[in-house]
Design a protein around this nucleic acid. Sequence first.
DNA 1: CGTACGTTTGATCTTTCTCAATAATGGTGG
DNA 2: CCACCATTATTGAGAAAGATCAAACGTACG
Lengths: 252, 252
Amino acid sequence: MDRVEQNPLESLVRKLETHHALTKEDRNAVLGLPYKLRRLEAQGYTLREGDRPDKCAVLLQGFAFRHKLTGEGARQIMAIHIPGDALDFQNMFLKESDHNVQMLTRGLVAEIPRQPLEELVLGNANVGRAIMVFTLVEASIFREWTLNIGRRDSRSRIAHLLCEFAYRLTAQGLSPDGVYELPMTQEQLADATGLTSVHVNRVLQGLQREGLIERDRRMVRFVSWDRMRDVGDFNARYLHTREFRAPPPSLT
Amino acid sequence: MDRVEQNPLESLVRKLETHHALTKEDRNAVLGLPYKLRRLEAQGYTLREGDRPDKCAVLLQGFAFRHKLTGEGARQIMAIHIPGDALDFQNMFLKESDHNVQMLTRGLVAEIPRQPLEELVLGNANVGRAIMVFTLVEASIFREWTLNIGRRDSRSRIAHLLCEFAYRLTAQGLSPDGVYELPMTQEQLADATGLTSVHVNRVLQGLQREGLIERDRRMVRFVSWDRMRDVGDFNARYLHTREFRAPPPSLT
DNA sequence: CGTACGTTTGATCTTTCTCAATAATGGTGG
DNA sequence: CCACCATTATTGAGAAAGATCAAACGTACG
């Protein structure tokens, strides 16, 4: 293959492969997609509710989140995205977006135009399947969040969110040692769990007091993965990761 | 075309077409899928968490719901399905199901084997796109439910659920006059909204007392669609229906 | 070094849950 | 058709989780 200096879409390929195997040709088809790099500040939008999605951003650096607002202006965050995630598949085939995607931190995305991406997805069965699986896993995460918010108490909810984040970061190779920086304010954490920031604060202090986690600023360290998993009622099945179904080794 | 006495998959075709246009050939490809009819009792499962999904059930008669359980056994319902809905696309491409799909009432489904369905979806760009859109709309509904449960108070939550149900039934031509039978117990309503059945009961009485709805058993009649829409903070955008974006005419 | 933003704390209030009992309903077998 | 049983709906009283309000404290960054 021609010597290329690290195609940023490698990141997308790697993500797709965590869910479904791709052949060399499939990989190249993905890597061959046109894209444009774009740097984004914290709070920058990649997609707004009501917009027509005409491109799909792949998150290369930084963190992003998905949210929508009630008529009264209350915000609910429905997903957190880490580098490697495709941000806009959820809207790609729709006429207008039904929610917002915004950066949590500053970061970098590769924007793939809608047309060639759609053609690839619909034309290449293997890539199509991988994207389909990726999309279905995202939907599965939405369901787990609904369960989390609807049926767990505040302590479990927060613990669950911390577990998911730890797990996904580790799966993506971004948290080698079970310590990570939670890239969100407590207010955002509240909007992700259906709580208030005041209460989130107290719950975090509670988890710390119980000796389950250690915190410094936004750094979080799991003292015991097992206990956090139990408190958060966390079962990674819903993430459908091909590799480690068990708790990430480094977190054990 | 050969005279067939109403292929049950017509129902699926009609559903797909509410989201994306199909050509005659596409329609025939869908109608040509093999299927087996199965009658199901209330509470019967079409899919259980952990199972390998090897078929996709299309709901022909009756109502179904999607749910999962916490480790403590609390249940969260994440979707209600009405006739015409495909119940198992959400798991079709996955190795194991991450949630349960169960009948709300007795009913009838057409089960399509996984293999030919996957081949059609991946091989026919038009059908692939329609299924993709259908799946994305389901995901959009999951997100709206997360918002509903995370950020609306009990009154709005219930009203929102009632609005969505009314809207979808009408869109599917199943509620000609703004009156419909809610095929759920108050306990199920509670599990769908993250509340308790006792509280659901009081909220329903409240809505009735306010003159927003009338009830008899499980029959619900909207006295004023507009007021219910406001109370429920209901905006149908998230349903991405091609036809009426406005409130269903019969509900106005 | 000051300002804006995020975190922490305390006091109080509200919504929703819990528990427990009673009343309807619907379906079933005789 | 009726009596009976299981489910579902309704009511009341009290408890609790989490929200709200308001203020003080930290900290990062321009």
